[in-house]
Design a protein around this nucleic acid. Structure first.
Lengths: 112, 112
DNA sequence: CAGTATCCGTTCCGATACTG
DNA sequence: CAGTATCGGAACGGATACTG
């Protein structure tokens, strides 16, 4: 998802980072509930496939927004959490989330 | 672009609406400069093709965010502007735009 | 549990040519 | 000026099966 660089405005850049299909949801979950394991994330986003979830997590990690902590155990355990940088994004995202929440009915009605 | 409904959070819904490749840019232009003609938008977003620009405008119009005013003249003249609803979105988008602006160097460096 | 690997249809998007 | 039409490649994304 490196779409149209160089960016024409900050909004472009931000949406490029957070525009992936499940990224906003993941950021929201991690902010709301603290560190979560792969399986916990998966269960809480019922429609996501493993492939998509891991892909989005990897991209968030590469962007420095999410930290991946692997515990070397059997069975394996991996926890994902927001980085400080990720938290700054989450804060910037909050008004947009509230807008979406407030206008969800309208969005579902008009948006194809 | 109706991606994953029903939405899991307001952020999902909002990004579904504004996540199109050029939509953020268009909203930003219209807020920043007031009503603009098709050709003016096109010139100010050099990388966009006519096809994509009109497609994104149509979707923004269908979502009620942008108003299209056609003047029946020869040669034709069409002006696009934000609706009141569109302005509420633009306000909600502003912190995200500032975040993107502030972190653009980092985004360009880390984001594939 | 936390992933990989592969297949494959769908959607996105750019390029180009044309029109009222 | 402000679009429309068509083509084709690339990226996205779901389903399924498999692994350390």
């Amino acid at each position: 998802m490196a779409r149209n660089r160089p960016y024409t405005c900050g909004l472009d850049a931000a949406i490029d980072v957070v525009g992936g299909k499940w990224k906003a949801t993941v950021l929201w979950m991690l902010e709301d509930q603290g560190p979560l394991r792969f399986g916990e994330l998966r269960r809480q986003i019922p429609a996501v496939t493993e492939k998509m979830l891991i892909q989005q997590l990897r991209e968030l990690e590469a962007d420095g927004l999410v930290h991946r902590e692997a515990y070397h155990q059997v069975p394996p355990k991996v926890e994902y959490s927001l980085t400080d940088y990720g938290r700054t994004l989450e804060v910037a995202l909050r008004p947009l989330g509230e807008w979406g929440h407030a206008n969800m009915a309208r969005i579902e009605a008009t948006h194809a």
